[in-house]
Design a protein around this nucleic acid. Structure first.
Lengths: 336, 336
DNA sequence: TTGAAAGCGATACCAG
DNA sequence: CTGGTATCGCTTTCAA
């Protein structure tokens, strides 16, 4: 079928071992022999069989990526960053989606381990650290992206979510909002961190934190727009109603804006809105949306780099944690 | 390290071959032996090493997917569909992005072939059929998605783009538009088909096709919004200016709408707009965007199914072609 | 500097 | 029904 090391070796009257060594830049090989081998490799356009190599070395040069939802722009961008960085280093990327379901995610992890990936990158939807023990047991290095798990000491790269929450909330305060609400999640680290930032900002500026202005929702990705819409409807029924809202994500914010406009209120005069994620279409929305930018693609790149270091490292390094600095992008939804 | 067939065989006093057969449901195995083996497999949570299997069988159970840009919602959705369908059948998905660059795409194809994927799914940016000869030479089955290549007889699944163009254009005609423009691409099959549909609709309704109302742009994905914006600016300078525009994609349409509003015209009263792709956020845009829905996720599912049939088939079937029926989704940008 | 031999973990063919 | 043996294509170890 295709060319094998043997063939090259035979053609040149050397052994397969020699070819193998040339291929991997093994140093004790005569410069002349090396040239001839290289020459022939090019001629035949030879490419070593990665499966055979994997079998012999135990390394597949494959990295697994598991995300909750590819359709969500944030994860698509992370994936893009990961993909590009890995390819540059000759690693392949095998992906799958957990569909925001912890059980699926566990299955996917097992699949990936069964495939002997060299490392894993996971934006996890787990609530407990349990599934990660299996990864550790297999000694497969992994990096958590975006979401961290309480009580799990793991390599992590994400956004400084507390800061994200503070940035957004302080901005709303600066714009004169008095009753600032938050539509967030319930168990993701991103959700609790952003909420913490929101709280901190309020307190720091002498505001009272009122629990009735804080919504905890679960459907953060799949049906996020609808979730934001309903949450906002509920908030608008409060008296006095909020005059500013920091939303967990841009889709949530999109739904929230819809609800506000539908009730006949103006954005931002009556209710100012800030989202998080800074999706590409934020500026094209009905009311251009202020949002916290997370540099998702960079996050993917960093995750990939981290993973490659782990793969090439001695496996004994301490778990590292890295957080990207979020930035607020102002638009009409909060800043006329 | 991990459990191997050997271990199970030794524990049970049978041969590795027997275990192997049980694993693959080979029929000539005693029911009792089978039970014992299955039992032990479960106990040890044994999983066969796919690399060893791949080496022996030549099948990796890996499918490669190459898309122009993961960030583009359309391709993210296709990917989602592919991923889900493949996983159900125990196949892994390895993806990469060509970044809308033909040369990268060729490299990616080579990478995938080098990795011995069992099949390929490609949304190609190639202008010629050349690179596909290499795939054919290796006897790796492949399916083209979304974009077809002139003169290449290959398995294909995409949208009925001619119909998409007709639907959009006929709708604009029905809404009373008299001078309908088109912002499209220059060499993609999707672009020329949608353009053909646009032309056909005009002619069929007794309109004249005026070339000055037809824009051909290249940057259809990366900087699509900006492309649409500039193209529309140009169109608005024409006299008489168009009163309806069918745009190649939703991002293009988004940019076009921006340009229209910025010049002080109303949508749809002065200029009606229809996009294509029906992105999730279409209804949340400044003016909710009418768009042709392409069922991208279904497209991904179909591509995956097709590829699996090819992998399991005899390799002798004729190239098949399948087109999904597009549907027009009306919103305020064309339908007050 | 080079190569022979022994795996890596499965599958395939054929004999018993 | 069961299993010995060769094989897949490459790496590793060690002797020459």
């Amino acid at each position: 079928m295709s060319v094998r090391m043997k063939d090259i070796a035979r053609d040149l009257g050397v052994s397969a071992v020699t070819v193998s060594k040339v291929l991997r830049n093994h140093r004790d090989i005569g410069p002349e022999t090396r040239e001839r081998v290289l020459q022939r490799i090019k001629e035949l356009n030879y490419q070593p069989n990665p499966n055979a190599r994997a079998l012999a070395t135990g390394k597949t040069h494959l990295v697994g990526l598991i995300v909750p939802d590819l359709q969500h722009q944030f994860f698509a961008q992370v994936t893009k960053g990961v993909s590009r960085t890995l390819r540059k280093q000759g690693y392949g990327l095998i992906i799958s989606s957990s569909e925001e379901n912890a059980e699926f995610e566990r299955q996917e992890i097992d699949q990936m381990l069964a495939r002997h990936v060299d490392a894993l990158i996971i934006a996890s939807t787990q609530k407990t650290a349990q599934s990660f023990n299996r990864i550790t047991a297999r000694r497969v290095p992994y990096v958590l992206v975006d979401r961290k798990l309480a009580g799990l000491k793991a390599n992590f790269i994400g956004t400084d979510d507390v800061r994200a929450g503070m940035l957004a909330t302080e901005h709303l305060i600066a714009k004169g909002c008095r009753r600032i609400a938050h539509i967030g999640g319930d168990y993701l680290s991103t959700a609790s961190d952003r909420l913490a930032g929101y709280r901190a900002a309020l307190i720091q500026h002498g505001f009272e934190v009122s629990e009735k202005y804080i919504c905890h929702r679960t459907q953060l990705d799949d049906a996020a727009v609808a979730t934001g819409y309903r949450a906002m409807q509920a908030l608008l029924k409060l008296k006095p109603r909020p005059d500013g809202v920091f939303c967990f994500s841009d889709p949530i914010a999109t739904g929230a804006m819809q609800a506000v406009l539908e009730r006949g209120f103006r954005i931002p005069q009556d209710v100012a809105i800030v989202g998080c994620g800074n999706v590409l279409y934020a500026s094209a929305l009905r009311v251009p949306l202020s949002s916290v930018n997370q540099e998702s693609e960079t996050m993917g790149e960093c995750a990939a780099k981290m993973v490659l270091e782990l793969v090439n490292g001695d496996g004994k390094t301490e778990a590292r944690e890295m957080r990207l600095r979020p930035e607020l992008v102002l638009r009409a939804s909060s800043d006329l």
